[in-house]
Design a protein around this nucleic acid. Structure first.
Lengths: 144, 144
DNA sequence: CTTAAAGTGTAGCACAGGCTACAATTAAAA
DNA sequence: TTTTAATTGTAGCCTGTGCTACACTTTAAG
C-alpha cells in the first residue's frame, strides 16, 4: 500500500473518531458544569437535532464510551472519562498554541476545534514546546 | 444561535469541503505530473474503489469544479483550478510550518493532510510568519 | 392532581462516502 | 484483427450523520 494511500486512510480513520471525541468532551463538560448531561444539552451544544444526538449516543454506547438508559441522563464509562480527559488536554494545548502564535482568540477557538483531531503526539509536543518557551519569555518581560 | 453552535457548524461545513479540496488538488497534481487525471489514478491515490471516485467526481461536476465525460480523463474547470491552487499553497504552508516546528517529516506529512482543511486565513498567516522568521534565522547560522 | 410544557424515543427520509458484483468500453497484446 | 486486459460505468448494499413528524415520558405549572 502506497504512502499516500496510508496517509489518506489515516485521515479518514481519524475523522471517524472526531465525533466520539467531541461528544465525550462535551458530556464531561456538561457534567462538570451542570451536574448532568442530557440529550437536549448536547443537541443545543452541537446545533443538531435531539435525534442526531440520540443515535450518536447509541453508537458511543456500543463503543463503551457512555452509558444511557431511556429518559435518563448520559454517563461516561471509565473509558469515556479517560478519552474525555485526553481530548480536553489536547484541545487546551492547541488553543493556547494558536493564541500564542498570534491568532485572534475568536478565530483560534474555531480553528482549534477542527485542528485538534488531526494533531499527532509529535505535533502536540511541538506545540507545547512553543507555548512553554513563549510563556517563559513573557515571564521576564510581562507579568500577564 | 450560540457561539458554540456556530463553531461546530463551521467545523462541519469545512468537513464537507475537504473531499472536494483533496480531489481538485490531486487532479491538478496528476495532470501536472502525468498529463491526465483518470478515475483509477484517483482511486489509487486515495485508496478507495473506483466507484467511490466516480460518484465523488459526479458531485464535483455538479459543483462546477471538474468536467468529465464517460470514459474520458477528468479536467478541472476554471473554478477547480483556482481552488486547486489555493489548496496546494495552503498545504505547502502547513507542511513547512510543521517541519519548522520540529515535527518529523513523515509525521508532518500525515498531520498536514488533516490540519490544512481547518486552518483559517489568520492562522495560515501566523504559520507563514513563523516559517519566514525561522528561515531568516537559519540564513545566518546554517546554509541548509 | 391534572394538565401543559419540555424532553426523549422511534419511524422513515436524504445525502455522502464506503463497498462488491457485474456490464460496457477502451487500450494493449497476440 | 481478434482477443485479452485494464479501465470505467451502474446497480444495489451498508454506515454515519443530518432532518421532520409523531408518540411517549417526565417535569413543572395550575
Amino acid at each position: 500500500m502506497g504512502n499516500t494511500v496510508k496517509r489518506f486512510k489515516k485521515t479518514r480513520e481519524a475523522r471517524a473518531q472526531e465525533v466520539a471525541q467531541d461528544y465525550v468532551e462535551a458530556i464531561a463538560e456538561l457534567i462538570e458544569e451542570t451536574g448532568t448531561a442530557r440529550v437536549i444539552d448536547l443537541a443545543r451544544k452541537f446545533g443538531v437535532s435531539h435525534v442526531t444526538v440520540n443515535r450518536t449516543i447509541a453508537r458511543l454506547s456500543k463503543q463503551d464510551l457512555v452509558t444511557s438508559e431511556a429518559y435518563k441522563a448520559i454517563e461516561l464509562t471509565p473509558r469515556g472519562k479517560t478519552l474525555a480527559h485526553t481530548v480536553k488536554e489536547r484541545h487546551a494545548v492547541v488553543l493556547q498554541f494558536l493564541i500564542d502564535m498570534g491568532v485572534p482568540r475568536e478565530v483560534a477557538v474555531i480553528d482549534a476545534e477542527g485542528i485538534e483531531h488531526h494533531v499527532s503526539r509529535r505535533t502536540l509536543e511541538a506545540f507545547k514546546r512553543f507555548s512553554t518557551s513563549r510563556n517563559q519569555l513573557t515571564l521576564h518581560s510581562n507579568k500577564e
